[in-house]
Design a protein around this nucleic acid. Structure first.
Lengths: 193, 193
DNA sequence: ACCGTATGCCAACACTTGTTGACACGCAAT
DNA sequence: ATTGCGTGTCAACAAGTGTTGGCATACGGT
């Protein structure tokens, strides 16, 4: 997402590349890595399967391009410490509802080692970095971030992947008010004995 | 798991059937539904692929048999209400570490609609039923159960599927003490405004 | 001993997969 | 007009998939 490309002049095939990427994200999000076939993606993008290979090299390469993702975490230092949990849940929910890339990554991460590795990278780097910005015991930072990830990914998993009815039917606002205190404690709570 | 079969007399092929089921669970847990091939499962069980078809009908049938699962939730009415969260996390962790069936189901549920449906059934029925045993507002029971599922499945997802390092390295006891208060609030906490 | 049946293996089918190479068209520069 | 190259289509390959039918063998009941 939002790649800052070097000032290469636009190619005539940019529209096709974008169509492929869009179709790929949809299919990966809906079907997972293995069920999303290059033929189906090409059909959605209304081009020939061989174009996918030419522009992205392989299925793995296509997925790597389609699963580029930035959590776009806000600057947590400018957030009132007591509202960290609320801000985080709300941000994650908005990020998920508005961009299916993360759902694609989530689905694929269950079965594709490369996707799992990327997911690990995203949360280990971006989330842990954000948690580290406000000064708590540095030895606990990784664990706090991991716990936050567990609740936030569990929320996404039950709501967007498994689609548990109570999690699908609940409004984002209600989810925020239930889950925010959890993240708040994971982030700033005193470690249990 | 632990199926209570009618008193049919033991077949000579029971050992083979069991070997297939064991290999299937391992493969489904390690690779997910689509990457776990019948040929690989048969090779693990040291029999011919056609035997799998004869005894389980199809790959879907094999998965259905291999993913039979009971959460074995304890009787929550005999638990001190203040310790419900702790008891639940500990139970889930133990259940996961000791039986790879749930991991198989979890992996498969990401890409296989049937597996997702089964996962929904398990949590909608077994967990919701357990939550309903202690009397809270019945209109909130499903939501409470859903929230518990989100945290518990997120724990499993980050620890066993994506394998986020901080979640893998943390001992079960530490996880319990962090997560128990979360479940406790989801189960018995007053609903937020 | 005989016979029906359960158990197992082998070979093959029909299909889908990712991937590749050859060939046609159209644009831009010379 | 001609050359080169980017863009696109078509057909095909090799490998792997779930699945099926036929055939051998060994067991259990009579």
């Amino acid at each position: 997402m939002t790649s800052s490309a070097p000032p290469t002049q636009p190619r005539r095939s940019d529209a096709t590349r974008a169509a492929i990427l869009r179709a790929a994200r949809e299919r990966f999000a809906a079907d997972g890595y293995e069920r999303a076939t290059i033929r189906a993606i090409a059909a959605d993008a209304q081009i020939d399967p061989s174009m996918v290979m030419r522009y992205y090299g392989s299925k793995e390469g296509l997925f790597a391009a389609a699963a580029e993702f930035d959590l776009r975490l806000p600057d947590l230092t400018s957030v009132p410490p007591a509202r960290l949990g609320e801000v985080l849940v709300r941000h994650f929910l908005a990020r998920w509802e508005g961009d299916e890339t993360l759902v694609a990554l989530l689905r694929a991460a269950s079965t594709n080692p490369g996707a799992a590795e990327r997911m690990r990278g995203i949360f280990a780097n971006q989330l842990t970095a954000a948690v580290a910005t406000f000064g708590t015991d540095p030895t606990l930072t990784a664990r706090r971030a991991g716990l936050v990830a567990s609740q936030v990914l569990g929320l996404a998993f039950t709501r967007y992947i498994v689609r548990l009815p109570p999690m699908v039917d609940t409004t984002p606002d209600e989810l925020v008010s239930w889950v925010a205190p959890t993240l708040q404690r994971y982030l700033t709570g005193t470690p249990p004995s």
